[in-house]
């Protein structure tokens, strides 16, 4: 393979992982907009998506598609439980935002540990969705899972855009993000919208985990790195802008894959954190400017 082929190959895989970072980043934004909270349990949702699908598929022989569907619904439910059990009690007591953020970090650790106890510490993987040979573009191989990741992510982003633009519930969620008090005055149940935001973000995280696990692996402790990548994606996009976060995820995925190619896999996280620092120094409001 020529250098150009290698770069192209890296970019394709970077695009795939970038989509996943983007989905996680959107999850951060949806909760942040609804509540002002940065939810560090976002990575746990990603881990749970892959893990629950794996357990259903391998231990209980549930058909793949059904296992994935059940996993997304279950993780969305975990999101609601997190909101009810951890966030809302603090919210009611008007706890400072950083306390709520710390609480989500604690929840991340609890979910991690419970998964460790219920499953084990071994890395788990999922079969690819379609076991076809990769598509060859010259000497660049594009595997179908990458296409699934990209197409699936785009479909979700499109559906999400429609949801926020067209449905009354979506508009109400946007209204809560713009002015929570004014939303209350329209009799919009703001606290229900908060629970919905957690369900939505958790479901998004689960989908990201399910899409990605076949090309990588999942284990009880993969959540935090994913959360950090999604967080960086959200920062790049301008925190609070869901679609900015998706673009941010793509950018991060591409930079990371090139960094792996030229600097080695060991510097993958260093590259991501460098991108974060770069943005925090040069353009803290992100590409598209922060939402608030």
């Amino acid at each position: 393979m020529t250098q150009a082929d290698l770069v192209l190959q890296s970019l394709v895989s970077g695009l795939g992982i970038g989509c996943v970072y983007g989905l996680i980043g959107i999850g951060f934004c949806v909760i942040y907009n609804a509540s002002g909270i940065v939810n560090f349990a976002q990575g746990a949702f990603v881990m749970l998506g892959g893990m629950i699908t794996h357990v259903l598929l391998v231990r209980y022989h549930v058909p793949y598609a059904l296992a994935a569907f059940v996993a997304v619904v279950a993780v969305a439910a975990v999101g609601v439980v997190l909101e009810r059990l951890v966030v809302r009690p603090l919210w009611m007591r008007k706890a400072p935002v950083f306390v709520m953020i710390l609480a989500t970090l604690a929840a991340q650790i609890v979910i991690e540990r419970v998964t460790f106890l219920l499953v084990d510490d071994q890395p788990k993987t999922l079969p690819v969705f379609l076991d076809w040979p990769p598509i060859m573009l010259g000497r660049v191989a594009i595997n179908y899972q990458s296409l699934f990741i990209i197409a699936g992510s785009l479909a979700i982003v499109g559906a999400l855009a429609l949801f926020f633009k067209v449905t009354l519930t979506g508009k109400a969620m946007r209204a809560c993000a713009i002015d929570r008090e004014a939303a209350l005055l329209q009799a919009i149940p703001v606290s229900t919208m908060l629970a919905l935001a957690f369900a939505l973000s958790a479901g998004l995280g689960a989908v990201a985990g399910i899409l990605l696990t076949p090309t990588q692996y999942t284990a009880f402790n993969v959540g935090v790195p994913f959360a950090i990548s999604g967080f960086i994606a959200a920062i790049i996009g301008g925190f609070g802008r869901p679609f900015g976060a998706f673009v941010g995820g793509l950018a991060l995925g591409l930079v990371q894959s090139i960094a792996i190619l030229w600097l080695g896999a060991g510097l993958k996280s260093a590259a991501a954190l460098s991108v974060l620092l770069l943005f925090l120094f040069v353009r803290p409001a992100g590409i598209f400017g922060a939402a608030k």
Binding site: L168, R174, A175, A182, L185, Q186, I188
Partner: peptide
């Protein structure tokens, strides 16, 4: 608000980034 006591607050509290149509629709949420 659901009981029909509806406040137009000081400073109006409109949803600025949303369209007029969306603002009106949300009034009848």
């Amino acid at each position: 608000a659901s009981a029909g006591i509806v406040l137009v607050p000081e400073g109006r509290g409109i949803f600025g980034p949303m369209t007029v149509a969306e603002n009106l629709r949300l009034g009848a949420y």
